[in-house]
Design a protein around this nucleic acid. Structure first.
Lengths: 346, 346
DNA sequence: GCGATTAACTCAAGCGATTCCTTACAACAT
DNA sequence: ATGTTGTAAGGAATCGCTTGAGTTAATCGC
């Protein structure tokens, strides 16, 4: 195996200095067009590639974004929430489009993640992704900020938290969904999902749900609010609880995520209830599964493609010291069979 | 914002030379235990992290794996096949466990990917992931090999291809699935999936299907073989074609992937056919959707966790110049309702 | 025609670690 | 006292590239 070529080799072959090679390869106007093309031709011939480590070391920047995916510690770690998997896909695309490499890493919220990436110069900035109770990690975020680390966080803006946030308007989504059910004539709505605050997203969805009830003069019944983290299993269990404690069954069940909703559908089916005839169900996220359940889930779609692009572009702006603002994306109501509405709406 | 500390700063504070700091931080036995601990303590205090670029440059190795995900150019690029998304998750975990960073990148098969990563010293090795017709890219793989780039490829071993492969035994999977249907009494089985060779995985599944038919004395009817790439839409369309051309309907439809199978289910439902009563359907991959379709899909599960671990560990072995062998993992038959069998089997 | 401008390069100083090669010093045997 | 180990640490040369400063030689203005 031949040694890998360096810029000196190219310089030698092209009969110019090594610095000229460097400039030529970065299309600097400081070098004559002919020389530039000659150098580039030779470089291509030798299959030469700039050594990123050397280049980064010298430039003190890595052209790399680190993506930290936080696993929900409360769920089985063998599977990632499909929603985040989609986000990962879209972030990958967006950063590639911006010419940045993407370093992906799974983290536990408890780990020492806050000092790993930008400090070691592996990345110019960090994207934080995950449901999760950032509250307990506020100090770590604060430390990131104090270190001057550039980062963006997925989630709704919370004034308590340092740093910039890109997120979906979960409150509005929960509101829209619930209002839709009310307009379909449902008088009693349960809510299944961890609204206790571990996942701020879920809490916001709950609050939207609650406000919709209030605005339409429906009393909020705390017995109709059940805890569940974002798994189908938790949804299944919560439904069993609901069936045991609440009689008659509410007319609608609003779930904090599609994953929960699938478990709910399962439990209802096993207990002989028909959806949407006996009870209507809604999810949240519009993960790929939700179009294929029976009945297909009415849900709220978060635009993961846009989200990925916004996360990346905001981070890059921050890196380049431009002003960046938090952004709250609207969710889109996706109406399918599980809510019992027949007409579709864009 | 204070400047980031370098090893010189630590050296100065600890009253030792910079080379001693470097040794102390890498736990070299060449430095006295007390000195080592003192240096490490100071480093932690200053929140010092070794500069990866400098370190990598000097060591000529990056402790990073590049994952190249090839998109199927024939499908809508906005969505990634959920199976590969799962693989991505498991590879991420496995490489993190091995202490390697993971650089993720989406590529078109047509791009210049073959010379990007290891050459520029961004990664010590490459994992190639994607369905796909590697045939047309054999020369690129060969070039990788010639450059001395370390890489592992997801997919079945093909003697035509350079490099090592980790894959699932798609032939056996297709065989098992089809035999299962035959044992359930099905006499006519269609196959939907691109068996034309674009996706070698699909071809192997088809061949297994075919052999099962032959072994049980069932004639292979080429009219019952339909083309479809791995999308639900393609499955839907193929089913329409099947309904138009084949009468009566075959007793079973074997699909090359779960995604295809969901489209098939959809089309059958819209045309008033019941699954599994009128016709049974099987998928392949056991993506998360397949447990939630109605009826739930009988399919073959590929162990993505094991696959990820094998890909990573094989690559690391190759990097360390140890012998590596191709590996063909067995698939596991997952029996659900769509094949009409009532009993479950592990 | 001569100083001033400009285009096109070359020089050389880092970037921050790693690591081979010395050196310093104490302990021990001769 | 002299030579021989062994242990701990320092010196300094890289790794391959980027970039500010310095050097030519040609072009320009008046």
């Amino acid at each position: 195996m031949k040694e890998k070529a360096t810029s000196f080799d190219i310089a030698h072959m092209a009969g110019v200095s090594q610095s000229t090679v460097s400039r030529a390869l970065s299309n600097s106007p400081l070098v004559n067009k002919e020389t530039r093309e000659r150098v580039q031709r030779i470089a291509k011939q030798l299959n030469y590639k700039v050594d990123k480590n050397a280049s980064n070391l010298r430039k003190q920047k890595s052209n790399t974004i680190a993506l930290l995916l936080f696993e929900d510690p409360t769920t089985d770690d063998s599977l990632i929430n499909p929603f985040f998997l989609n986000m990962l896909g879209s972030i990958t695309r967006a950063s590639a489009a911006a010419g940045y490499d993407l370093l992906v890493s799974f983290q536990n919220l408890d780990d020492d993640w806050h000092a790993e990436f930008e400090d070691s110069k592996k990345a110019d900035g960090i994207i934080l992704l995950g449901y999760g109770d950032y509250t307990a990690y506020r100090d770590k975020l604060a430390q990131l900020e104090e270190q001057g680390t550039h980062f963006v966080r997925w989630g709704a803006k919370d004034n308590d938290h340092p740093g910039i946030s890109i997120g979906c308007d979960n409150y509005q989504g929960g509101y829209d969904l619930t209002r839709h059910l009310i307009q379909l004539g449902k008088k009693t709505c349960a809510f299944i999902g961890d609204a206790g605050g571990h996942a701020p997203e879920f809490l916001a969805r709950y609050q939207g749900y609650r406000q919709a009830l209030v605005d339409h003069g429906i009393a909020v019944d705390t017995f109709l609010r059940l805890d569940a983290n974002s798994t189908d299993e938790a949804g299944y269990n919560a439904t069993q609880t609901l069936l045991n404690t609440s009689s008659p069954l509410p007319e609608a069940i609003v779930c904090a995520s599609d994953l929960i909703a699938t478990g709910v559908l399962q439990a209802l089916k096993e207990n002989g209830y028909r959806v949407p005839e006996d009870v209507v169900v809604t999810g949240y996220d519009n993960i790929s599964i939700s179009a294929f359940t029976t009945p297909a889930l009415t849900t709220v779609q978060q635009d993961t493609r846009l989200a990925g692009e916004l996360l990346v572009s905001s981070l890059l702006k921050a890196i380049n010291k431009q002003a960046v603002e938090d952004y709250l994306m609207p969710g889109e109501l996706i109406i399918r069979e599980s809510c019992g509405a027949s007409q579709h709406q864009a």
